[in-house]
């Protein structure tokens, strides 16, 4: 069953993501042709940090980078609700 959520990036791009596919926020942004920041793609370097303006995410693995309140790590999380993110 698909679970569709809307992800708004930098207040301008409206993306749709199917959370049941396990696509990470980083992949969602890449598929939309945006150029998100990343290095490790594995939750341990913090390079993919984006601001989580509204909504909630689920982490697919336990990230080692510190997640400051109001941030999320795009490489290792999926949408749990509609989201608004800035990078």
């Amino acid at each position: 069953m698909s679970q569709l959520y809307k992800v708004k990036v930098n207040g301008q791009h409206e993306l749709t993501v199917d959370a049941s596919q396990g696509t990470t926020l980083l992949e969602v942004m890449e598929q939309a042709g945006l150029e998100p920041h990343y290095h490790c793609r594995n939750g341990f370097c913090g390079a993919c940090r984006v601001q989580l303006v509204s909504g909630e995410v689920d982490y697919v693995n336990d990230p080692l980078a510190f997640i400051r309140p109001g941030d999320c790590l795009a490489c290792c999380c999926t949408a749990k609700t509609d989201l608004e993110i800035n990078q």
Binding site: C40, L64, F66
Partner: peptide, 16 residues
């Protein structure tokens, strides 16, 4: 990458 994240952790744990 791991090393820099560890000192970021220390700095953030202090700050928060």
């Amino acid at each position: 990458n791991l090393h820099l994240v560890s000192t970021q952790q220390i700095l953030n744990l202090w700050q928060y």
